[in-house]
Design a protein around this nucleic acid. Structure first.
Length: 294
DNA sequence: CCCCAGTCCTGCGGGC
DNA sequence: TGCCCGCAGGACTGGG
């Protein structure tokens, strides 16, 4: 499930396309239900062919390829989408190909097994209205502790559910929300408006630590093996997971646990009942906390 | 503002 | 052995 670290890894993996010229663009259909591509493929192709790639950026969980006509090609992987330079896991789920000249990578591919993802070409105006500040909060790696707190402090929602709200802060998904709350020692069901100032500080520090470490490990490739970087290699942050998908295992922080699974907003949440107390009693002493903010 | 359920979509694994 | 069903969940939508 590509979240910020996986999408950032995809972005870094295709940086070599900057400076290239687009020579072709095709939607690839192999009998499956086609993914969302807009505008329709012939129109999209006409608008991108001949353009030069001036930048590759990330916006929350989306990869942006910026063209010299100011339009932006937006890849949104959602659950199972991949942005690749070559070697997709299989041929039948290849969805889109962008052909290039003038750079070493000759193509950018969009592969998506489940087909929930999308490829869109947006004008600057569309980008502003569809993915602007009204739709997307600050990037999780850019947001300050004060801004994070300011945006969520009056909310009565469970903090884990609120962290998934892309309008509050962009880039956090189900996996990393559990991980950062565990590192911060905060119960996932705790209401935002009940978090103390020190808890907001710890959450912000844990957020930065977990996401930047996950980028360093090139993301998490779960048991289904879907997620890959642009060169079709798996990530390795799954080996660093503290709680995610580790129900009944002992807690890596306090050694007790066992780690529990619960469901919030129809999504699995993992936490340590000893390190992350909802009320009453102190959290079990942590062996190691997140590094303090520079 | 918040919450919930439904929708999209395919592959996988449990249960019978 | 094979089939059905439920589950996985990011983003979005409509109803309460």
């Amino acid at each position: 499930m590509p979240e910020l670290p996986e999408v950032e890894t995809m972005r870094r993996g295709i940086l070599g396309v900057v400076g290239g010229r687009v020579t072709g663009a095709q939607a690839v259909t192999c009998g499956l239900k086609p993914i969302r591509i807009s505008p329709r493929p012939v129109t999209l192709c006409r608008r991108v062919v001949g353009r030069r790639i001036v930048a590759v950026e990330r916006l929350g969980k989306r990869v942006l390829i910026r063209l010299d006509c100011d339009a932006v090609l937006v890849f949104e992987p959602r659950m199972t989408g991949l942005v690749l330079l070559a070697d997709p896991p299989d041929a039948e789920h290849l969805r889109f190909r962008l052909q290039l000249a003038g750079v070493a990578p000759r193509q950018v591919l969009f592969w998506d097994r489940r087909g929930l993802g999308s490829v869109r070409l947006l004008s600057p105006r569309q980008l502003q209205t569809e993915l602007g500040p009204n739709k997307l909060g600050p990037d999780a790696l850019e947001i300050t502790a004060d801004d994070l707190r300011g945006r969520l402090r009056t909310s009565r929602r469970a903090v884990k559910v609120a962290l998934l709200d892309q309008r509050a802060v962009a880039g956090i998904g189900n996996l990393y929300a559990s991980e950062m709350l565990h590192m911060a020692g905060i119960h996932p069901a705790k209401r935002c408006d009940r978090l103390t100032g020190s808890e907001w500080q710890r959450l912000h520090a844990a957020l930065r630590h977990v996401l930047s470490e996950a980028i360093r490990y090139e993301g998490s490739t779960l048991a289904d093996g879907t997620y890959r970087n642009a060169l079709n290699a798996p990530g390795s942050y799954q080996n660093q997971h503290r709680v995610y998908d580790r129900a009944a295992a002992s807690c890596p922080t306090c050694g007790a646990g066992p780690i529990r699974r619960m469901v919030q907003a129809q999504r699995a949440t993992f936490f340590c009942p000893d390190c992350q107390r909802l009320r009453g009693g102190k959290n079990r002493r942590r062996k190691a906390g997140p590094p303090s903010q520079p």
